[in-house]
């Protein structure tokens, strides 16, 4: 084989790797399509991680909340990229900018929840700042339109209080206290830290206010009937219905935990058990008023 042929072959080898590198780098373009696809994939992984946590929580020590997948940084990165991309959208294309802000906010939501899970009690990391920026800029953009996109603007109206409520409940929503293995003061400490009376009331109020704003922005209406069970392709109202039910379940869970802890130790307590129970009953009543059915919170 001549030297020229060898050189030619090695040259083609180099070209192959160059084309491959170009293809790989070409896949990294941060369009709405690309970012959305990555985000959707991550939410699927997050769902699977949640299912694993629930299974472990159901079978193991009630005080141990198993960790989730380490997806927080990936979600935060999508949020950052979406905020950056939103700045590059033409000023006349407000709807696309809003879509980027919606994506930034929803990705930041997951990052914020994971921060709360991995370092409970720690000061908020970068996810809160991303969420706030996405919500404020997104809401501004929504206000510019006479007919704002229903889903995106409704979600942006409620994004921040929804994420705050989700983050604050992350450390205790899967607790299953048992008499023999669980210390009541630990349960109480977790609740006090993340869901003390004033904080939790403010979070509930924030969620309600955001929800009202969302409904005012986008005439989504309310339909009678039981909780939605469809997990794919629901309407904006289905989304709120599921979250409204879960808000009521969180309030009830907090009240139940507070009563359980109080029944096993002497006061003083920083949570007013009665007030917690009344708040839960009110949330359940709001749900019944809106949808005409009762709240079901699951079995395990």
């Amino acid at each position: 084989m001549t030297t020229e042929r060898r050189r030619d072959r090695l040259g083609r080898l180099a070209l192959f790797w160059a084309v491959l590198a170009l293809l790989v780098s070409g896949c990294a373009a941060r369009t709405l399509d690309d970012l959305s696809a990555t985000y959707e994939r991550l939410t699927i992984e997050a769902s699977q991680s949640e299912a694993t946590r629930r299974t472990a929580s159901a079978s193991g020590d009630s005080m141990i909340v198993p960790p989730g997948a380490n997806l927080g940084p990936a979600f935060a990165n999508i949020s950052r990229e979406a905020l950056k991309a939103a700045q590059n959208v033409s000023s006349s294309d407000v709807e696309t900018r809003i879509a980027f802000y919606r994506l930034a906010a929803s990705a930041a939501h997951f990052a914020l929840v994971e921060e709360a899970r991995s370092s409970p009690g720690a000061a908020g990391g970068g996810a809160a700042a991303l969420l706030n920026e996405a919500q404020s800029r997104g809401s501004e953009a929504c206000a510019q339109l006479k007919t704002p996109p229903q889903r995106d603007c409704a979600y942006l109206a409620v994004a921040s209080p929804l994420a705050t409520l989700a983050a604050s409940s992350e450390t205790w929503r899967l607790l299953k206290p048992q008499d023999k293995v669980t210390q009541p003061d630990r349960v109480r400490a977790i609740l006090d830290e993340r869901a003390g009376d004033a904080d939790f009331d403010a979070q509930l109020a924030g969620y309600q206010a955001g929800r009202q704003k969302a409904i005012a922005l986008a005439p989504i209406g309310a339909s009678a009937g039981g909780p939605a069970t469809a997990q794919r392709g629901g309407s904006v109202m289905d989304f709120f219905q599921v979250n409204d039910a879960r808000v009521a379940c969180l309030a009830r869970k907090r009240a139940d935990l507070a009563v359980w802890a109080a029944n096993r130790q002497q006061p003083p307590s920083r949570i007013d058990r009665r007030q917690a129970g009344v708040a839960a009953a009110a949330a359940e009543q709001r749900y019944r008023d809106a949808y005409g059915g009762s709240v079901q919170c699951g079995t395990a």
Binding site: S57, A163, A166, V242, G298, A300
Partner: peptide
């Protein structure tokens, strides 16, 4: 995103 579900004793 949805709020997390709760475990029940």
């Amino acid at each position: 995103p949805l709020l997390g579900t709760v475990s029940r004793t």
